[in-house]
Write a protein that binds this DNA or RNA. Sequence first.
DNA 1: AATAGCACTCGTGATGATAGAGTGCCAGCC
DNA 2: GGCTGGCACTCTATCATCACGAGTGCTATT
Lengths: 340, 340
Amino acid sequence: MKQRHEYILGEVVKAYLDTGLPVGSRLVSEQGGTDLSPATIRNVMNDLERAGLLYSPHTSAGRVPTDTGLRYFVDSLMVVDSDIHARLDAEVAQSLAGAADTKGVLRRASDELASLTHFAGLVTVHEKRIRQVRSISLIPVSSERILAVIVSDAGEVQNRLLVRPPRMDDAALALASGQLNDLLHDCSLAEMRRRLIREMEADRLKVRELIEALKNWAEAAETEEPEIFVRGQPQLLEFPEIGMLDTVRSLMAAFEEKEHLLDLVNEVERTETGVKIFIGREHALVNMEQISMVLARYRGAENVVGTLGVIGPRRMHYDRVLPIVDCTARWVSRVLGGQL
Amino acid sequence: MKQRHEYILGEVVKAYLDTGLPVGSRLVSEQGGTDLSPATIRNVMNDLERAGLLYSPHTSAGRVPTDTGLRYFVDSLMVVDSDIHARLDAEVAQSLAGAADTKGVLRRASDELASLTHFAGLVTVHEKRIRQVRSISLIPVSSERILAVIVSDAGEVQNRLLVRPPRMDDAALALASGQLNDLLHDCSLAEMRRRLIREMEADRLKVRELIEALKNWAEAAETEEPEIFVRGQPQLLEFPEIGMLDTVRSLMAAFEEKEHLLDLVNEVERTETGVKIFIGREHALVNMEQISMVLARYRGAENVVGTLGVIGPRRMHYDRVLPIVDCTARWVSRVLGGQL
DNA sequence: AATAGCACTCGTGATGATAGAGTGCCAGCC
DNA sequence: GGCTGGCACTCTATCATCACGAGTGCTATT
């Protein structure tokens, strides 16, 4: 592509990102650091339109970059201000430092993404499920309740209050706890369920209710919903192109039915590390052609991994958002890696 | 109020609930079980308007019930179909039965509220915070991690993975666990924090890092966010009176900043048990004049209490929604009371 | 007391004219 | 040959106008 064409594409994109409106040849001629006449620019824009990088909503509107146009801009033309990283770093670090636990870190991360970008911040967690049981213990809580705690090989913990079987004192409980631990040590949830059923049939452990409860738990844990933290949705409505009723509906639906979002987000998973940008139709979410996403993976210690990023209008300033997402992902990884 | 006036108010309200549009005298005259002429009805409607129960958006539109008009309808005119309870009961019970734990029950409840009413279902949890520590225990997890578990006097459990101090074997851990338990047994979170600080200063327990971590935890737990489950928000957008941009924005903001919602919801708390209805401006949420809420308390065992209900358009069929909320609250209470 | 009729008001939707923005193309200029 | 100024053209957004329909309030009538 000729240098002039690149230059003009860049100018059109920049103007579009600022205003969200179609940009005409005159504007480019006047604002840009060039002294080309509108007519010349029109010719170039015509070429760009034929190449599929721009398009006109109608005859006498200016041009708007297509998804491919924006993509070209992001991939080849955009320069990310490197100074920004330094300023961001402190801000993000401070915000995450105050968090108490993993959940808190992720919540704050989504908060921070939202407030830095003024779009919606999104953090998802994958792989948190217990795949392999490392240990299980039963702890007395009161005369009527006991607490069961399962720790996975990934260090993830789940616990639940259970009803204490009648006539089971603390000693018996400790014994049962040991037995259970021997039985279930290092097996998967499915295996755990199977073994518990076998035990129930054999009625070896005498505490049928307890085992039943554990079995139900194992079943439930397998089908648990993935978690997702979203902040700043209302901010999106400020953008008229998103304020369309259909878009809002789809957006809310997407956040509520997390599956679609997660499918998409999994793609980032498969990509190399780094930030991945989806522009307009590049994600396949319907009614969300006006929406872009900037996502990155993070990876804490203990197999806590996931995706975080920003959902905003197609016309966001990718050069500012990209370092924000990148920086946040790095810090989340660092904080989680250090603390958990 | 004269019987005829009540009758006509009722007809207007019913028609309004169906269509959401202003209703004129002719419509009432034709649909209703009366043979009064439109002119007569106009006179009555005029009286009702002066009484503040109806109002006209403009000269030649029909009448719309005011908040007070709807309130009068709900309090005095509405008859709740009692058959509905029986059908609901089975449905709700079945839906909640499948849930694995408290959180699951609440999530399903909000789901069920949303799908039964086609509005947004809302479930909040109060009083789940730990006020008084009943017991604390440290459990070995791996050579590098230990699990700290705090059980409150309300039976609520919180746990957290901590880094195991170097050179602390399982025996030392058990010892420390006992000591801590003696120290912190039956004290409030604030008190727990104070004692831990004192211990740190005296350096009596030798495991400074551990205590520090616990202290941080106590601080974080005090400021923890209340939980809230919302489902079915997108369904609200189907109603044109809610599809207004301002309303949507306020709605999303309200769900995101839970404080306002919770303030409101706390009012239900103070009321006697039963279902409480907020119509339009009766709640003080700005930009949400077109929105009503139907809320009820639930109360499980172990001090798990909260509020649940429905957020929908002002023109909802209160006679159908009311039993749904009521029934759900009862079942949530029952299920949580039985299982926890 | 209820009704019928009528004049009046107001919002809605269609129509048409106008101004403005921006293009495409052509002829001329460097 | 590439760039530019000029011009005709197209399309949209906006506004005023108009007719229509809906519904009311009032008054005369039964």
